[in-house]
Design a protein around this nucleic acid. Structure first.
Length: 111
DNA sequence: GCCATGACGGAGC
DNA sequence: TGCTCCGCCATGG
């Protein structure tokens, strides 16, 4: 699970009131394109670690959920709202506004 | 060891 | 904007 340690580290560094997409976390965790593993990894460790997993959402800006989660989506949304993240009528957030982005490193959105 | 599934992403229609 | 299909990797039966 060492490789996932990077994922946990990234998620753990997500600041208050901001969110990150699985793809973004995957990229920052040196796992480009493996967004699925990020979600899977979080699913396996979330309840067992002190990680703000509720700040990790999908590229659609919507809080992902699973039949097994059964209601945790409500909790995640509540936590995000408590941090100042506003949800629209479709239950999605404005990624352009709440998406977490590193101050300045090597990664740039575009040119 | 193989098969099916899954907190996703991106491209196509 | 919304839905569908494909790809990628790890886990569980």
């Amino acid at each position: 699970m060492s490789k996932y340690d990077a994922i946990y580290a990234i998620v753990r560094e997500i600041p208050y009131g901001q969110v990150a997409t699985y793809g973004q976390v995957a990229d920052l965790a040196n796992l480009p394109g493996h967004a699925r593993l990020v979600g899977y990894a979080l699913f396996r460790v979330a309840p067992d670690a002190d990680i703000p997993w509720h700040r990790v959402i999908n590229a659609k800006g919507e809080v992902s959920e699973s039949p097994v989660r059964y209601g945790s989506d409500h909790l995640q949304r509540s936590l995000l709202e408590a941090e100042g993240v506003q949800f629209n009528a479709k239950g999605r957030v404005n990624l352009s506004r709440y998406r977490w982005q590193k101050p300045y490193d090597h990664e740039t959105p575009d040119s």
